[in-house]
Design a protein around this nucleic acid. Structure first.
Lengths: 205, 205
DNA sequence: TTTGTGACTGACTGAACAGTCACTTTTGAC
DNA sequence: GTCAAAAGTGACTGTTCAGTCAGTCACAAA
């Protein structure tokens, strides 16, 4: 810290914090590809344009870096969903939930958010990761419930079909033109990936 | 092979094949804990009571071993579900599907089958693993569709709630006594883990 | 100019692990 | 018993990777 330590921190003051943010957001992308165990820290460092050593300087370890990425990911999803609920002119809980479903499909267009969730879930045998997933889900489910006003069973269905989306993306079912694959992915597609735009799951049938 | 090569292979004939089976079934259990990337072959070997070198003798590599385990896992699930469909006295498609849902919840009691599916899904960036998952899903969805006679949307819902089960098990939501966690796991529980036995998902509401 | 400090890195270490290979032990046919 | 093939392993190798450490560089205050 500066010797006289004036109260005003005018400018550059914490390039480190900016780097930290940059590394986390790059980490979301990089970890999304192959997950926690299969992704070296060096790869995240390269994506952020810094040395691996510096990543360890800013984060206590690989695990903490991954957890930060997971938290960032859940927050982006939550913010996106809430924004869609606030932005829709729907009024009934089911309609708001349907708008959120559309927003979720749209959010996960780039695969990073969905794949990181999936990888975080599958690394839940690491206690710190499991805790992060639980925190993320807690906030997500609570936010969706509050914003939509939907009942428990509807929110459960929302999440179930969300998980189905994860499977479709992971296993790349959209690329398979067979009956069974269409059974799983019918009605759950990105508007411009398929001729029949629709919302995921029978939210009102 | 034997010198004169008689057509009859009387007894022991292929301890290796028996070992291979044993290793695969242990591999399901061991890989289920931490997944493909985080599980050393040595751990599978130890669980099967053989040396790591011998595992590499029976399998071309770690990847092939994992793929075999995944195939074994999907087959067990498929066989279990079909057996429940054959064994039920239900007659309508929805009732058969409900029986299968109960059977699935029962099948995954030991966590191994569910966790290996999850880990296989999350390792889908490895082409061979993705192909195995696709094959497994193809057979599973086809079998469920044929055995139940249910329509596409119902089978989709069946799978969606199955994926929700995966999330509940991975993140250990059953151990969390909070509203959001109950929202996700209500009605999806092992009969003896909760006072209110029920089938997963609103299959008839 | 000197001096102090935060940003940042190259080069290294130690451990873990996939895969190999030469070797020993077991088994079964004659 | 003998012999060949199959079953099975210990010891090794090359690589990858998390994490460390001593140090450089840019810059700001005095």
């Amino acid at each position: 810290m500066p010797p006289t330590a004036p109260a005003t921190e005018t400018k550059s003051r914490s390039t480190a914090e900016a780097q930290r943010s940059k590394i986390v957001s790059r980490a979301v992308r990089v970890f999304a590809h192959a997950g926690y165990h299969a992704t070296p820290v060096a790869q995240v460092a390269a994506a952020a344009g810094v040395s691996p050593a510096y990543v360890f300087r800013l984060f206590p370890g690989k695990l903490a870096l991954f957890v930060s990425a997971v938290e960032h990911c859940y927050e982006r999803v939550r913010v996106g969903l809430i924004a869609s609920a606030d932005g829709t002119d729907a009024s009934t809980p089911e309609e708001i939930l349907a708008a959120m479903s559309d927003a979720y499909v749209d959010l996960i267009r780039d695969r990073d958010l969905i794949m990181l969730q999936v990888h975080a879930q599958s690394a839940c045998d690491v206690p710190e990761i499991r805790a992060a997933v639980q925190r993320g889900l807690a906030e997500l489910v609570t936010a969706v419930t509050d914003a939509s006003g939907a009942d428990s069973a509807s929110v459960q269905r929302f999440v179930a079909y969300g998980q189905l989306c994860h499977l479709i993306v992971q296993a790349d079912l959209a690329s398979i033109d067979e009956t069974w694959a269409r059974t799983l992915s019918d009605g759950i597609q990105h508007p411009d990936d398929a001729p029949t735009p629709s919302r995921p799951g029978p939210t009102r049938d």
